[in-house]
Amino acid sequence: MEENKFEFVQFDEESSEHIAAPVYSYWKSVWRTFFKNKLAIAMLVVAIFVIIFSLIYPRFSGYDIAAREHVMDFSRRYISPNAEFWFGTDNIGDSLFDAVWAAAGSSLEIALIVTAINLTVGIIIGALWGYSKKFDVIMLEIYNIVANVPFILILMVLSYIIGQGRWQFIFAMTCTGWMGIAYFMRTQVMIIRDREYNLASRCLGTSTMTMIVKNILPFLISVIVTLVSRDVPGNIGYEVFMSYLELGLDVNTPSLGRLISSYQAFMNVYPYLFWIPVAVLATVTISLYLVGQFLADASDPKTHM
């Protein structure tokens, strides 16, 4: 062994600090995880298709629920699904295809507005509720009172008082609907609130608002996405249920609940009239729910590794 063939290796402190992994980006990792899942992509396509069809198609189809323009044309009634009328026609001669998408659009629109209002109010109040111990004492009492009254009862009483219609229904849904979300957020915030890095932020003089926005809410993205994915289909469900009981929307607002309720009489004679709206309802809610769930999974950083 010749010693001159060996040389001392120097310990390089800087290279020991180097991180070889590529730079991590939260949202990029979310999308990468999401698009890895084939079912997620399929559901996203279905959901986008459903949303575009229900929100945009009715604007071009010229369908007007109040017009009843073909009511005198008896030859147009009860046509089974064919090339001209994809979903057939109903008891007053309107194309079911147009009616169903107009109804789905209006149901979806209402559900999205209600979810947006409930989530915004619920998250803001819930974050403060979980963060402030003084606010908690008051809010818990209010919550206990409201939570003990069934939500359906509140909905029914409110729609009897303020009447039926799109905005009345949205008001009834959001009047106390945010409370459940706020309570859920309160618990989540409390779990994170006392972690040590929040103490560190307080030692650095960070304000409460900054703490909520920078230290707490980023940890709850996946929880919030889960909430959205549960709430949109849930609110569609409430709207359908209330309209089915002829309490939610007025007669001149198209809605899946109204359609299903008015066509259920034909369940045996013209089954397509009943089952097509039900199938559309299922497609809308299931696809939105699944996309939300997959997105919630992907937004949990534990799945990014």
């Binding site: 972690r195 890095y197 920078k214 230290n215 980023p218 940890f219 950083p301």
Partner: peptide, 12 residues
């Protein structure tokens, strides 16, 4: 702080 595992904000 004592515990470096919990004293840094993981999302920042």
């Amino acid at each position: 702080f004592q515990d470096p595992a919990t004293s840094l904000n993981e999302r920042a």
